[in-house]
Write a protein that binds this DNA or RNA. Sequence first.
DNA 1: TCAGTCACG
DNA 2: ACGTACGTGACTGAG
Length: 664
Amino acid sequence: MQIFHNWSFDGHLLANHGIEILGHRSGDTVHMARLWDTSRQGRGGYKLSSLMQDLLGWGKTDMKEVFGRFKLKKDGTPGKVVYLPDSLTLQTDPNVTMFEKWIHYSTYDTICTWYLYFSLRKELENMSWSPDAIVYENELLKMRADRTLFTFYDCFWRPFGQILTDMERKGMYIDKDYLYQQAEKAQEDKEKRTESFMQWVRSLCPDGKYININSNPQKRHLLFSSITEPDDAGSREPHMRTFQVDNKVEEEEEREEEEGEEGEVLFLSPPRSKRSISLLGLALTPVAYTATGQASTAGQVIQKLAGKPFASPPSYGTAFKDLGGGEEGKAACEALASLLEGEAIEKLLSTFLLPLPEQTDEASRIHTSLNINTETGRLSSQRPNLQNQPALEKDVYRMRKAFSAPPGRKLIIVDYGQLELRIMAQMTGCRSMLDAFEQGGDFHSRTAIDMYRYIAEAVERKEVLLEWNSHDGAPPAPMLKDKFASERRKAKTLNFGIAYGMTKMKVARDWGVSLEEAEETIQTWYSARKEVKQWQEEVIERARRTGYTETFLGRRRYLPEINGRDGVGRGHAERAAINTPIQGGAADIVMMAMLKLRGEERIRRLGWRMVMQIHDEIILEGPEETAEEVFPLVRACMEQPFDSPLSVELPVDGSIADNWYEGK
DNA sequence: TCAGTCACG
DNA sequence: ACGTACGTGACTGAG
């Protein structure tokens, strides 16, 4: 019997030393604890010490407290900062007491994990589990009589945990040269784009050329700060503020030039790493405020200030008027638009293009950590996060091309269509949604037909088409999603928004309509989907009564705030109560699909392995020769994650590709 | 360490 | 009085 507290960590560590652990892994106490209580983050989390304290009342000191050492200062004396030396240093410490401490600590750790398993197991065994009957035919589940949350753990999450560890270990192949090449391109583009912004700032105040476009405080000050409080003489001065910024390359070049002219001595004084700059506030009108009440500098805000100065004809944003129009206003809008473009590229560079190639192993593969650590049961991906790689039009440097199959191999990339909406239809039993899915075609267009009588009439008179196969030539009438694009967009927003508990305030603000109008639109959506409203009310009511909400595989999320006195917290808990069954239900389905995939001997024998999961998408890698054979098998697993079908189909789209970009 | 911002589903 | 759609992780500047 093997028990681990975070098997993924220990497993990789052992494997890296050539040690393979055979036999039955009975449990991972991190996953068990997460299943027991999803919301311990901020209440001690899932650390062994905190769980031991809360479940068994056992004290346990953190490693840092026992083995931490003071970091040495430059002069060799101990400083205040405590750090934890690596395990090899600790194990080989010549001090015998340290060695004994190490043995004691490790032993105690092991004992804790052992007792924690049985404690958590007991907790889970005392929690009822009533999933939808469809899962009762699952191979593992069939063989046992118990039906508690521990059963769920043992039959589903325990093997799922092993799948995740295998995926982490396998990793994804990255084309590093391609990334370097794209990063260079991005760097050039960024400089080109920000040039006009930098020049504009320079024209406003002399220190403007040193502004750091990554600093929100600096941007906020430059754009929105106005005048200071009146001084003793009662006069107001334009607001100046100083910032510390890094010395840029240009400054060092200037120094070298100056000193070069002098001829002899270079670097008389060491280069300063920081310099003070003063920026003058422009007093533009803020468009939005952050949670702490400061003027926001988010992209949407800058967009509103700038307008579309490069469009033809150009349209100028709010900065134009604020600066008195004319050439000055125009220059500001153009500069801000260029800032936006530069910022977008900077984001891609600093988060994706530059760090990724640094994080590969010697085989050019990248190993993310896949955690079951969310409130809803979704996975998260860390160090690096591979679940937020730029997609579609945001992927201007074609990042996803770097995630590729090594020579001789292929990727199979598959994803569910409208998974969450289908689960919503399934759980609510909403006739209108189920019908729309049965009829097929574009779901959001069908919602638009439901909501707007004139669209329904146009469809009836065949003035617009709901769908058209482009193989049959040009469509005989315009498409609904083109002709009624804005209605379809609204329908789409509601389809998603309502699943999350969107309110009329958000609708009114996002669409720029009155509260009454927003309310009416929401009512129209609900009027054809009464089952949804009823389901949401029931779910919230049940959550108030039981203290938790659950997915249809019977996983719970406790919502202590749902009966609290804090209105904001209560509102959030209510929205979480209706969203978690949907988001978590989707996570359950993908997990079941992955278990089924892992159990398909044929797929495995042909050498195919899962390498990534992105919530409703799975990526496998395997030999080129068998891709065609394996692809339909993969699809079948995903479309039938359970032994008996749901009341909605779960269609899966996908392709065989050389890289992630092609897969879309 | 926190706040702000922005990448994903 | 306040904020108002769910769930994540990474990077950056600044105190």
